[in-house]
Simulated assay, not measured.
Amino acid sequence: MAHNLQTSFYFSVSISGMGSSDAAFQEVLGLSKEMGSEDVVCGGENRFKYRLPTMTTFSNLVLKRGVTTDESSLIAWVKDTLDDGLANPIQTKDIKVRLLDEKGNVSMQWDFIAAYPVKWSASDLKSQDGEVFIETLEFSYRYFEVEDSRSPQMDLYA
Protein backbone atom coordinates (compact mmCIF):
# COMPACT_ATOMS: atom_id res chain seq x y z
CA MET A 1 0.00 0.00 0.00
CA ALA A 2 1.63 3.26 -1.15
CA HIS A 3 1.17 6.47 0.82
CA ASN A 4 1.70 9.88 -0.70
CA LEU A 5 2.77 11.89 2.30
CA GLN A 6 2.09 15.60 2.25
CA THR A 7 5.08 17.88 2.69
CA SER A 8 4.89 20.86 5.04
CA PHE A 9 7.26 23.25 3.26
CA TYR A 10 4.99 24.21 0.33
CA PHE A 11 2.35 26.60 1.72
CA SER A 12 0.93 30.07 1.24
CA VAL A 13 -0.52 32.68 3.57
CA SER A 14 -2.97 35.43 2.69
CA ILE A 15 -4.38 38.16 4.88
CA SER A 16 -7.57 39.99 3.89
CA GLY A 17 -6.80 43.50 2.68
CA MET A 18 -3.04 42.85 2.32
CA GLY A 19 -0.97 42.38 -0.80
CA SER A 20 0.89 39.20 -1.65
CA SER A 21 4.24 40.80 -0.75
CA ASP A 22 3.07 40.88 2.89
CA ALA A 23 2.28 37.16 2.90
CA ALA A 24 5.71 35.57 2.37
CA PHE A 25 6.40 33.61 5.55
CA GLN A 26 8.99 30.96 6.28
CA GLU A 27 7.12 29.33 9.14
CA VAL A 28 3.56 28.96 10.43
CA LEU A 29 2.89 27.70 13.96
CA GLY A 30 -0.24 27.21 16.04
CA LEU A 31 -2.43 25.05 13.82
CA SER A 32 -4.09 23.38 16.78
CA LYS A 33 -7.24 23.24 18.85
CA GLU A 34 -7.88 21.38 22.04
CA MET A 35 -10.94 20.41 24.03
CA GLY A 36 -10.51 20.93 27.74
CA SER A 37 -11.88 18.71 30.45
CA GLU A 38 -13.08 19.24 33.98
CA ASP A 39 -12.77 16.77 36.83
CA VAL A 40 -16.00 16.20 38.77
CA VAL A 41 -15.94 14.12 41.93
CA CYS A 42 -18.92 11.84 42.35
CA GLY A 43 -20.57 12.27 45.75
CA GLY A 44 -20.22 9.17 47.91
CA GLU A 45 -17.97 7.37 45.40
CA ASN A 46 -14.34 8.16 46.25
CA ARG A 47 -12.61 5.67 43.93
CA PHE A 48 -12.82 7.75 40.78
CA LYS A 49 -13.91 11.03 39.27
CA TYR A 50 -15.64 11.93 36.04
CA ARG A 51 -13.73 13.83 33.38
CA LEU A 52 -16.27 15.95 31.54
CA PRO A 53 -15.56 17.87 28.31
CA THR A 54 -15.50 21.67 28.42
CA MET A 55 -14.94 24.25 25.72
CA THR A 56 -12.49 24.05 22.83
CA THR A 57 -9.49 26.38 23.00
CA PHE A 58 -7.21 27.56 20.21
CA SER A 59 -3.54 28.43 20.38
CA ASN A 60 -2.35 31.70 18.83
CA LEU A 61 -1.38 31.71 15.16
CA VAL A 62 2.34 32.48 14.81
CA LEU A 63 3.88 33.64 11.52
CA LYS A 64 7.64 34.05 11.01
CA ARG A 65 9.41 35.82 8.17
CA GLY A 66 12.53 37.71 7.23
CA VAL A 67 12.43 41.48 7.69
CA THR A 68 12.63 43.52 4.49
CA THR A 69 13.34 47.19 3.90
CA ASP A 70 10.05 47.64 1.99
CA GLU A 71 7.02 49.38 3.48
CA SER A 72 4.56 46.88 4.86
CA SER A 73 0.84 47.34 5.37
CA LEU A 74 0.93 44.23 7.57
CA ILE A 75 3.48 45.78 9.93
CA ALA A 76 1.51 49.05 9.91
CA TRP A 77 -1.57 47.08 11.07
CA VAL A 78 0.47 45.29 13.74
CA LYS A 79 2.03 48.54 14.93
CA ASP A 80 -1.31 50.39 15.02
CA THR A 81 -2.91 47.58 17.02
CA LEU A 82 -0.09 47.10 19.53
CA ASP A 83 0.99 50.73 19.94
CA ASP A 84 -2.48 52.32 20.21
CA GLY A 85 -3.54 50.05 23.07
CA LEU A 86 -7.29 50.23 23.24
CA ALA A 87 -7.52 53.91 22.28
CA ASN A 88 -8.92 52.88 18.88
CA PRO A 89 -11.06 49.86 17.98
CA ILE A 90 -9.01 46.82 17.00
CA GLN A 91 -9.29 46.04 13.30
CA THR A 92 -9.66 42.30 12.65
CA LYS A 93 -8.75 40.51 9.44
CA ASP A 94 -9.20 36.97 8.18
CA ILE A 95 -6.02 34.96 7.59
CA LYS A 96 -5.84 31.95 5.27
CA VAL A 97 -3.07 29.36 5.44
CA ARG A 98 -3.02 26.96 2.48
CA LEU A 99 -1.02 23.74 2.28
CA LEU A 100 -0.16 23.03 -1.36
CA ASP A 101 0.55 19.75 -3.12
CA GLU A 102 3.41 19.16 -5.56
CA LYS A 103 1.37 20.73 -8.40
CA GLY A 104 0.58 23.89 -6.42
CA ASN A 105 -3.05 22.91 -5.75
CA VAL A 106 -4.55 23.53 -2.33
CA SER A 107 -4.81 20.27 -0.39
CA MET A 108 -5.71 21.78 3.00
CA GLN A 109 -6.74 25.26 4.09
CA TRP A 110 -7.08 26.86 7.51
CA ASP A 111 -9.30 29.97 7.74
CA PHE A 112 -8.58 32.05 10.85
CA ILE A 113 -11.59 34.27 11.43
CA ALA A 114 -11.40 37.79 12.94
CA ALA A 115 -7.67 37.68 13.68
CA TYR A 116 -5.76 40.54 15.28
CA PRO A 117 -2.11 40.93 16.30
CA VAL A 118 -1.21 40.33 19.93
CA LYS A 119 2.61 40.13 19.79
CA TRP A 120 5.56 41.21 17.66
CA SER A 121 9.07 39.97 18.36
CA ALA A 122 12.37 39.80 16.52
CA SER A 123 15.35 37.48 16.47
CA ASP A 124 18.45 38.32 18.46
CA LEU A 125 21.06 40.62 16.96
CA LYS A 126 24.43 38.84 16.73
CA SER A 127 27.45 40.33 15.03
CA GLN A 128 29.14 36.95 14.58
CA ASP A 129 26.25 35.34 12.64
CA GLY A 130 25.21 36.10 9.09
CA GLU A 131 21.60 35.01 9.51
CA VAL A 132 18.51 36.77 8.20
CA PHE A 133 16.77 39.05 10.72
CA ILE A 134 13.47 37.30 11.54
CA GLU A 135 10.30 38.88 12.86
CA THR A 136 7.64 36.83 14.56
CA LEU A 137 4.00 37.92 14.45
CA GLU A 138 1.46 36.37 16.78
CA PHE A 139 -2.29 36.60 16.25
CA SER A 140 -5.33 35.82 18.33
CA TYR A 141 -8.57 35.02 16.52
CA ARG A 142 -12.15 34.02 17.14
CA TYR A 143 -11.92 30.49 15.67
CA PHE A 144 -10.57 28.62 12.68
CA GLU A 145 -12.06 26.26 10.13
CA VAL A 146 -10.24 23.56 8.18
CA GLU A 147 -11.02 22.65 4.58
CA ASP A 148 -9.51 19.38 3.43
CA SER A 149 -9.65 18.86 -0.34
CA ARG A 150 -7.37 15.83 -0.50
CA SER A 151 -8.82 12.80 -2.22
CA PRO A 152 -11.05 10.76 0.11
CA GLN A 153 -9.05 8.53 2.41
CA MET A 154 -9.63 4.80 2.40
CA ASP A 155 -12.03 3.79 5.16
CA LEU A 156 -9.94 1.66 7.52
CA TYR A 157 -13.00 0.40 9.36
CA ALA A 158 -15.01 -0.82 6.35
Rank of each mutant, 00 (worst) to 15 (best):
H3I: 15
H3Y: 14
H3V: 15
L5Q: 11
Q6E: 14
Q6C: 07
S8Q: 03
S8T: 08
Y10N: 08
Y10V: 10
F11N: 03
F11P: 01
S14R: 05
S14T: 08
S16C: 14
G17F: 04
S20T: 10
S21V: 09
S21D: 14
D22M: 01
F25S: 01
F25I: 00
L29R: 14
G30L: 04
G30Y: 03
S32L: 12
K33A: 10
K33F: 14
E34F: 09
E34C: 12
E34L: 13
M35F: 07
M35S: 01
G36Q: 15
S37M: 15
E38A: 11
D39G: 05
V40L: 07
V40W: 02
V41C: 11
C42G: 12
N46W: 03
R47E: 10
F48Q: 12
F48W: 13
R51H: 07
L52W: 11
P53W: 06
T54P: 06
T54H: 04
M55R: 11
M55Q: 15
T56D: 08
S59D: 12
S59T: 10
S59K: 13
N60Q: 05
L61M: 01
L61Y: 05
V62A: 04
V62M: 03
L63I: 02
K64D: 02
R65E: 12
R65I: 03
G66R: 11
V67T: 12
T68R: 03
T69M: 15
T69K: 14
S72F: 02
S73F: 10
A76Y: 10
W77S: 00
K79V: 14
L82G: 07
D83G: 12
D84Y: 06
L86F: 09
L86S: 05
A87E: 11
N88A: 15
I90K: 01
Q91V: 11
K96F: 13
L100G: 04
L100K: 04
D101G: 06
D101S: 03
E102L: 13
E102T: 10
E102F: 08
G104P: 04
V106Y: 03
M108Y: 05
Q109R: 01
W110V: 06
W110Y: 08
D111R: 06
F112H: 01
I113N: 12
A114P: 04
A114S: 14
A115L: 00
Y116H: 01
K119T: 00
W120V: 05
S121G: 04
A122P: 04
D124T: 10
L125H: 09
L125E: 12
K126H: 12
S127E: 12
Q128G: 13
D129R: 08
G130F: 06
E131H: 07
V132Y: 10
V132L: 09
I134Q: 01
E135H: 09
T136Q: 13
L137E: 00
E138Q: 05
E138C: 01
F139Y: 00
F139H: 03
F139R: 02
R142W: 04
Y143E: 15
F144H: 00
E145H: 07
V146P: 05
D148Q: 11
R150D: 00
R150P: 02
R150G: 04
R150T: 06
S151A: 13
P152I: 08
P152S: 09
Q153T: 14
Q153H: 13
M154F: 13
A158N: 14
A158R: 14
